[in-house]
């Protein structure tokens, strides 16, 4: 029994899902959920702004995943769980009339379609990446370089620049997003260029 427990904790998310689908045993989902429960709780807090409600919602999400994972094919569990949690939060807010939105059914649980962007990034040369980094706005570029290249923490960046910790975080997040977009744009342009040449 103890050996089995050792084994289960070493299984990957996907392996746990497969095992659950095969054996229908709660221990697999319990292990799986325990890896992310704190994140589900945190996201719920962000939306619901109340600890008791966030705890209830975390429990609900646990119940829902046990049902959904029986049949649902999930290739990236954390991404899927994030989306599921957000949906549950929105449903909860709608139920309590704390948000007015267009009615929405719950089939939007597909994982984020980000693998295409990632593929493009993987194929990007470092030189291109650094070149595009230079094209960012000065504050974003400075914070990105200090964080990613100099490996400085937010606290360290804050003490060596005029920016507050909040600004540093924001510059890095926005810089990262802009950099990705520039790289994707760059890759798309190259693809089109190649297609034109071959035509």
């Amino acid at each position: 029994m103890k050996l089995f427990k050792t084994h289960i904790s070493k299984l990957s998310d996907i392996e746990l899902i497969k095992a659950y689908q095969k054996e229908n045993a709660q221990k697999f989902t319990a292990e799986l959920f325990s890896r992310y429960a704190h994140l589900v709780f945190g996201v719920s807090l962000k939306y619901l702004k109340s600890e008791p409600e966030a705890k209830d919602l975390t429990q609900n999400v646990y119940t829902v995943i046990q049902k959904k994972l029986k049949t649902h094919e999930v290739t990236n569990f954390s991404s899927w769980l994030h989306q599921l949690t957000k949906n549950e939060c929105l449903m909860e807010l709608r139920r309590n009339k704390r948000i007015e939105l267009v009615p929405l059914t719950e089939n939007n649980l597909e994982e984020e379609d980000s693998h295409i962007d990632e593929k493009i990034l993987l194929e990007t040369k470092i030189e291109t990446l650094l070149k595009e980094l230079e094209n960012l706005k000065p504050a974003q570029k400075e914070c990105m370089k200090l964080f990613y290249l100099k490996k400085m923490s937010y606290r360290e960046i804050t003490s060596s620049t005029p920016y507050s910790e909040k600004e540093v975080k924001s510059y890095i997040q926005n810089g990262k997003r802009n950099l990705k977009n520039q790289l994707i744009h760059h890759a798309e342009f190259r693809t089109e260029e190649r297609a034109t040449r071959s035509a």
């Binding site: 992310y36 704190h38 994140l39 589900v40 709780f41 945190g42 996201v43 719920s44 807090l45 962000k46 939306y47 702004k49 109340s50 600890e51 966030a54 954390s78 991404s79 769980l81 994030h82």
Partner: peptide
């Protein structure tokens, strides 16, 4: 990770 980032924001702002 948006998941981790959202969770950290939630805990930091509204929880313990």
């Amino acid at each position: 990770s948006d998941f981790s980032s959202d969770a950290a924001d939630g805990i930091k702002t509204y929880g313990t």
